[in-house]
Design a protein around this nucleic acid. Structure first.
Lengths: 221, 221
DNA sequence: CACAAACCGGAGAGGGTGCCTCTACTTTGT
DNA sequence: ACAAAGTAGAGGCACCCTCTCCGGTTTGTG
């Protein structure tokens, strides 16, 4: 509120090596948070970047700050997706496309999923981005319903649930068959149609029995 | 393998107070594991039972053993459910009923969900029970498909995924609206029909916007 | 080139958690 | 009444994470 120097006041540019390392840290964080979720430690991120922990803390005051810096832009992408979807001609198709694309964005990034569905991590920027999406998604849902594509009893607040459910399928199978969530989402979407016809063709074959076993061995609550 | 005295060799019955406390421990474990999942500590369980930790360790050699003792019978219940469902007349209805009932069994018990979907906890007995269920569920699925109720591209290995997905919805909303999973499962099942008609009536109203927010605040990855 | 400012590495402080043990004390039941 | 069985819960041990500190290195400017 009373922060004098805006974020666009880099008093002096970073030294060349420092700037290079800053980028290394962000790249490493993206990968490590993506794979292991926000529970990954800054030590992990530092070492994965080939740096010491101190270097990370010199650049980012805390883990929170790094997380915020990392995921602000990715959240924006999802918001943009919703905005774009509202411009599409066919409202049902727009809804379906938005769902596929937004989950596609999650799919490789466990950290992003956690940020989106929990309030415990991001702060201002992340919260703003979430708030921006509420009316967009509401509109998207209403349009799809008015057009008779989406079942009338679906509610905008079911969207996070949907992301949660598919997200858990992603987490469960990612070690074994990282694209299997497409199968789950396709079935789910079949259940959301107002006037369902034949079941749609599933975009991914089922797991084998042994793969289920492996998934159960990798997954931890 | 070379364990001489079978499990049915209680050399001497427990002292009266000890037996009472053993039951207190199991009851407490059931409740605490159910609410907090298997990450709950034995200290928590002991204190919730009004006992000291030492008492718990006198009765159960380790946390693992307590978990195994706790959940063996509940796993059996689910297996029995599948067996029973195979006797029902209408194969599709049998499939649907089994799904509702088995998830109903999970719904209040986070520990049970974790046991079922992860291989990291139970040992022998739990694994046996899981193995017993495989052919039962396969048969249940095949019958429902042959009867033309269940979509033909559904696979028995999709069942754990389904449990996973609904389970995550339970976890996400349990603090806010513990029965909301019924809504999710109803939509999911609509997506599994071979010849869907109108969408089924949802058994639970949607969350409110503020409830979503609360769920996001309570939920942790 | 020389030198101050900026930067790096990583050991370890500080604070936290959980499993399990150990012993002085209490209860049971013969 | 007394030995055997049971109990409480403090604390040992091992582990983990965030963040700090400081001796040594790099950068880029005068």
């Amino acid at each position: 509120m009373a922060r004098d120097a805006g974020p666009a006041a880099p008093a002096r540019p970073l030294r060349r090596d420092a700037e290079l390392n800053r980028r290394r840290i962000l790249a490493s964080a993206r990968e490590v948070f993506g794979r292991r979720g926000l529970e990954a430690t800054l030590d992990d991120i530092a070492h994965h970047a080939g740096l010491g922990v101190g270097t990370v803390y010199r650049r980012f005051p805390s883990k929170e700050h790094l997380v915020e810096a990392m995921f602000a832009e990715r959240m924006e992408e999802i918001g943009d997706l919703a905005e774009e979807a509202l411009k599409a001609a066919d409202p049902w198709q727009a809804f379906v496309d938005f769902t596929w694309k937004s989950i596609e964005l999650h799919s490789g990034d466990r950290g992003l999923r956690e940020i989106m569905l929990s309030n415990k991590f991001g702060h201002e920027h992340v919260a703003e981005e979430k708030a921006r999406m509420v009316p967009l998604i509401t509109r998207l849902v209403e349009r799809a319903q008015e057009a008779g594509g989406l079942r009338a009893d679906f509610a905008p607040t079911d969207i996070p649930l949907l992301h949660m459910m598919v997200g858990s399928a992603i987490e469960f199978t990612s070690a074994v068959e990282p694209d299997l969530w497409r199968r789950c989402l396709a079935m789910l979407l079949d259940g959301l149609r107002a006037q369902p016809g034949k079941p749609s063709e599933l975009p991914h074959p089922p797991l084998g029995v042994d793969e289920v076993d492996e998934a159960m061995s990798c997954w931890r609550p």
